[in-house]
């Protein structure tokens, strides 16, 4: 099977509330998929179901043939799924370099012995990966600064750098444009496109319709936990169900 990410009948209930209701969809290798929906549509929950933060009530999630149900987040991360957070979760009291190192180490553990032998191949690979990620996100010049001292926008890139250092096959970005101004959002759009051009499969959960429409090749729309559309941007934009979900209908 060449399946990349498949979600089958994913359902998540919180008490009486069905946050994600029987959603079936898939992401193919190399795609750049957007996940949108009005507030409370279940975007973040679906996202948490994939990354292992929230367990499924029923249904299945498979990534490259491995069933993710019930797997711990750190195991899922090691399988090659990197993610960023809507409300940032960088390590404020660590340097930018160390923040990214954690990502590189997380999926590529190194023992104390490796660190002692400074010429060790593994230590070299790790610092190489860290610098690559830092250069990719243009953070190399602040490598020794504390993460807490970075601007908000820079911290977003730091989170992406940390995820990139994991060398993931699949990157999930949770509302990366939240809190950014228009020019920063534009810059971010170009950055996401360039990551995609490098062959990374990306899922973008986003509120900013402009960003999603301009960047994604396929868009999944959720409303009240249900999938209501799954198509290319132009089709989604014209879909009456989507318009209804976003604008409401006249009684």
């Amino acid at each position: 099977m060449s399946d990349f990410l498949t979600i089958q009948n994913a359902t998540r209930r919180f008490g009486g509330l069905v946050a994600v209701d029987d959603v079936t969809t898939r992401v193919d290798h190399g795609q750049l998929v957007g996940l949108i929906g009005p507030n409370g549509a279940g975007k973040t929950t679906l996202f948490n179901l994939i990354s292992g933060f929230t367990p499924l009530s029923s249904g299945d999630v498979h990534f490259k043939g491995t069933r993710l149900n019930g797997m711990k987040p750190n195991r899922i991360a090691r399988l090659g799924i990197g993610r960023t957070f809507q409300n940032l979760r960088v390590f404020p009291n660590m340097t930018v370099f160390d923040n990214v190192s954690v990502g590189a180490f997380g999926t590529h553990p190194q023992s104390a012995l490796d660190a002692l032998r400074s010429g060790s191949k593994r230590a070299e690979t790790i610092s190489e990966r860290v610098w690559q990620a830092l250069e990719r996100t243009e953070l190399a010049y602040v490598a020794t600064d504390l993460a807490a001292n970075l601007s908000y926008g820079k911290r977003k890139y730091l989170e992406i750098a940390r995820a990139l250092a994991m060398q993931p096959d699949f990157l999930i970005l949770d509302e990366p444009a939240a809190g950014l101004n228009d020019s920063e959002t534009l810059e971010l759009a170009n950055f996401i496109r360039s990551l995609h051009a490098d062959g990374l499969t990306i899922m973008l959960v986003e509120h900013d319709m402009g960003l999603v429409m301009s960047v994604c090749e396929r868009i999944v729309v959720l409303a009240s936990g249900k999938k209501i559309a799954d198509a290319d941007p132009d089709t989604v934009r014209a879909d009456p169900a989507v318009l209804e979900a976003y604008l409401g209908t006249d009684e």
Binding site: S51, F53, K72, P73, N74, A77, R78, G82, R83, F85, R89, V90, F91, P92, N93, M94, D98, S101, V102, G103, F105, G106, T107, P109, Q110, S111, A112, A115, R162, A163, M166
Partner: peptide, 26 residues
């Protein structure tokens, strides 16, 4: 400062959830 274990400890002290999602076994 130099080892995987140490970086993990600092990362978990800073933000346990963030650490979990970069593959650290908290």
């Amino acid at each position: 400062t130099r080892t995987h274990v140490g970086l993990s400890i600092r990362a978990v002290s800073n933000n346990p959830l963030g650490a979990r999602y970069v593959g650290i076994n908290v």
